[in-house]
């Protein structure tokens, strides 16, 4: 059984810097759909609390806080810390090339939805 520490290295898709975790702020799940007024209690609860928590491929938000200040998204494996790619936050779903890369690396992966 391994147990040590990590110090993630993620490439900021805006400034191209390979940024160390200390330069970044994590922001949990990516591609969230916001539910505001008019949504049901269930929708609102799911949006606020029932966040994805997979052991495996995960899409998440990071901010290059001590760099360019931009939020970006990362596809990362929570079980191995492998990073499949990073991409700008201004998209509705993960880019196709990253999806392809994940499928190649994780044939059993059920897809991002």
């Amino acid at each position: 059984m391994e147990t040590g520490c990590n110090m993630l290295l993620l490439e900021c898709p805006y400034c191209g810097v390979k940024a160390e975790e200390t330069e970044l702020s994590p922001g949990y799940e990516a591609h969230l759909k916001r539910f505001g007024p008019g949504s049901t209690d269930e929708e609102f609860e799911a949006y606020m609390f029932a966040r994805k928590n997979p052991k495996g491929v995960h899409f998440e938000r990071w901010r290059h806080t001590y760099g360019c200040g931009k939020w970006f998204l990362a596809a990362r494996c929570t079980a191995t810390l492998e990073v499949f790619g990073t991409y700008p936050a201004q998209v509705g779903e993960p880019p196709a090339d990253i999806i392809e890369k994940i499928k190649a690396r994780r044939p059993d992966w059920k897809g991002y939805k």
Binding site: G4, N6, M7, L9, E20, V83
Partner: peptide
């Protein structure tokens, strides 16, 4: 002393 993820 230690090897950490991502080559640290």
């Amino acid at each position: 002393a230690g090897v950490y993820d991502h080559g640290y």
